[in-house]
Computed example of a mutant assay.
Amino acid sequence: MIRTSIAGLLALTLAACAMVPLTSAHPEARLYAPEANAMADVDAAFARAAASGKRVLLVMGGNWCHDSRALAGWLETPRFAALTAQAYEVVYVDVGVPQTGKGRNLDIARRFGLDDMPGTPALLVLTAEGTLLNRDTATSWRNAASRSEDAIYADLAALAETPVP
């Protein structure tokens, strides 16, 4: 009797779970390429930025990280693509899992004055000359999946207009 009741309760629980949609509140993209020559990609973004008068948006993350995938997903939407096409040269850099000591391409972060990457993703906004404009917020994007579309957009739009020190 008890086993039958438990089995029935379990069946109801599983049925209820099956009815809950498994969609996330944000788009996701897997744009971090571990096999890429990240330093060459970054240098190419700076060359494009110098020629176009834009800033470099350096997105450092990993495909294993839901926050990194969420940020990359937002950047791929038409709304964000319009903003980045106007203001930024975007480059994605796979950084492995720096929180566990298994990071890669961390020399790129150090190149721009970030000695520590406590989590992923990190988002660096740089001038075409390599000046980091958001040192205070570059590593604060570890919660990108829980940020709203409008909040992320507002931050990127403001960073596009940040005066050069």
Rank of each mutant, 00 (worst) to 15 (best):
residue 115 D to N: 15
residue 23 T to R: 15
residue 133 L to N: 10
residue 136 D to F: 07
residue 24 S to P: 04
residue 52 S to I: 02
residue 72 A to G: 12
residue 137 T to W: 06
residue 120 T to H: 02
residue 82 A to D: 05
residue 100 T to Q: 07
residue 148 S to A: 11
residue 102 K to C: 04
residue 165 P to D: 14
residue 57 L to H: 09
residue 77 T to A: 02
residue 9 L to I: 06
residue 99 Q to C: 00
residue 42 V to P: 11
residue 56 V to F: 08
residue 163 P to Q: 09
residue 162 T to K: 14
residue 78 P to Q: 01
residue 120 T to N: 03
residue 11 A to R: 04
residue 17 C to N: 14
residue 121 P to A: 01
residue 145 A to E: 10
residue 144 A to W: 10
residue 120 T to K: 02
residue 142 R to V: 12
residue 139 T to A: 09
residue 6 I to H: 02
residue 56 V to S: 03
residue 88 Y to C: 10
residue 9 L to K: 01
residue 104 R to P: 04
residue 159 L to H: 05
residue 45 A to V: 13
residue 63 N to R: 14
residue 4 T to A: 13
residue 97 V to T: 08
residue 101 G to C: 03
residue 21 P to L: 14
residue 14 L to Y: 13
residue 65 C to A: 13
residue 81 A to Q: 07
residue 149 E to P: 00
residue 155 D to C: 06
residue 154 A to F: 04
residue 3 R to Q: 09
residue 164 V to A: 14
residue 8 G to I: 08
residue 9 L to M: 09
residue 58 L to M: 12
residue 155 D to G: 03
residue 136 D to L: 10
residue 48 R to T: 07
residue 79 R to T: 13
residue 45 A to F: 15
residue 72 A to D: 10
residue 101 G to L: 05
residue 98 P to G: 01
residue 29 A to Y: 14
residue 57 L to V: 11
residue 123 L to C: 14
residue 62 G to S: 15
residue 46 F to S: 08
residue 68 S to C: 09
residue 151 A to V: 07
residue 88 Y to Q: 09
residue 106 L to S: 08
residue 49 A to N: 06
residue 72 A to H: 08
residue 77 T to H: 01
residue 39 M to I: 13
residue 116 D to K: 09
residue 89 E to M: 12
residue 140 S to R: 12
residue 114 L to D: 05
residue 70 A to H: 04
residue 33 A to M: 08
residue 16 A to D: 01
residue 54 K to G: 00
residue 128 A to F: 08
residue 119 G to H: 07
residue 4 T to N: 04
residue 26 H to F: 15
residue 130 G to T: 11
residue 54 K to Q: 07
residue 96 G to C: 07
residue 140 S to I: 00
residue 161 E to V: 12
residue 152 I to P: 00
residue 82 A to M: 03
residue 165 P to V: 15
residue 94 D to H: 11
residue 90 V to A: 10
residue 54 K to Y: 01
residue 35 E to M: 07
